[in-house]
Design a protein around this nucleic acid. Sequence first.
RNA 1: GCCCCUAUAGCUCAGUCGGUAGAGCAUGCGGCUGUUAACCGCAGUGUCAUAGGUUCGAGUCCUAUUGGGGGCG
Length: 372
Amino acid sequence: MFKYEVLHTCKQTGARVGKLTTPHGEIITPVYMPVGTNAGVKGLTPEQVKAAGAQIVLSNTYHLYLRPGSDIVERAGGLHKFMNWNKPILTDSGGFQVFSLSSMRKVTDDGVKFSSYYDGSAHYLTPEAAIKVEEQLGADIIMAFDECTAAGTNYRKSVGAMQRTLSWLERCVKAHTREDQMLFPIVQGNLFEDLRVESVKATAPFARCGMAIGGLSVGEPKEVMYKMLDVIRPYYPQNQPIYLMGVGSPDCIVEGVLRGIDMFDCVLATRMARNGAAFTRRGNITVRNGAYKEDFTPVEEGCDCYCCQNYTRAYVRHMLNVGEIGGGQLLSIHNIRHLTRLTEDIRAAIMEDRFGDFVENFRKGYDWKVKG
RNA sequence: GCCCCUAUAGCUCAGUCGGUAGAGCAUGCGGCUGUUAACCGCAGUGUCAUAGGUUCGAGUCCUAUUGGGGGCG
């Protein structure tokens, strides 16, 4: 039911193009996966997400467990039917929320006690409970329940979180019953090279068709993240897709693929869009800025997305400016398409054994933030 | 005609017992990486309607004028 095959390995860089088969279709990697936390990519319909080139979307166990309740999603016929998305879906386990909503939780070896972010009600999530919720939701790929730590967490706590993640992984594997879902284990270890190596070595044996790298892009400099990827790369399970969780700015995707990553997800594209900024191949532009008031060119020249094909920067800025949701919507379409197009270009370069040149050119032409 | 209210940032308005002014919105800019985020942060600007008066000192008290709003005839 699940299969991953490497279609081509770049002779210049060792980066690869692959095909991951799931019950809801194939995914060509490297892939960028838009995030639809609450069973919907913010601001967009599934049709728009599809049109932007998405092959798979993420959704979130934690959020759907709280609202509307995973039992309701199950009774609705599962997540695919509920959100009208017939392509592959990946659900995050809630491990990241345990981390990002840390002010209202208590972690023990058994599980996590937390209060709901919207009504304060008390809840208790364990690896078994998280897996059960993910089975009710019914995504194609489900994530193990892990403990993520922030950049700057000390060694002792990082060891604890890494070990807890491993013991939780064993419990997740044991609790997982649905054959039509692939469980991805997650590597932790914070920013300590030895812990990362220890974690990847212990985690890889649990990977059947895919493994994830968690706990990166949590506040550390990009160079540190790249270094961590270099350190663990030799220990990846063979012929399985590797998923770098939560990462997805254009530059991080390029650098990630160069370091053996096949799958990315990120809220940045849609969040930055709603906040008025657009990805371009040269870097990010803040479309809401006054400089674009009378700029009647597309957000990105040469982009084939619905936004760039039909609207100008001046119009998008106006929409943002007057508070119309259309502005964030158009930019979300653009930013998602920008990343799917970027991965398409990356794949083409890999297929033609010129990804090294591609990376060089990309780095030369890219700044995080640009004007015009 | 008489009476009352009002005039402070681009807009809407605070401003204590007299001690040379602030919020929100708007504007400008910055940030955003397994979404508690259509969010968060920073910044700028004022002949305090005008002219007098009282006072050491007036956005604040007094007088007049002008603009705006309302009431009674």
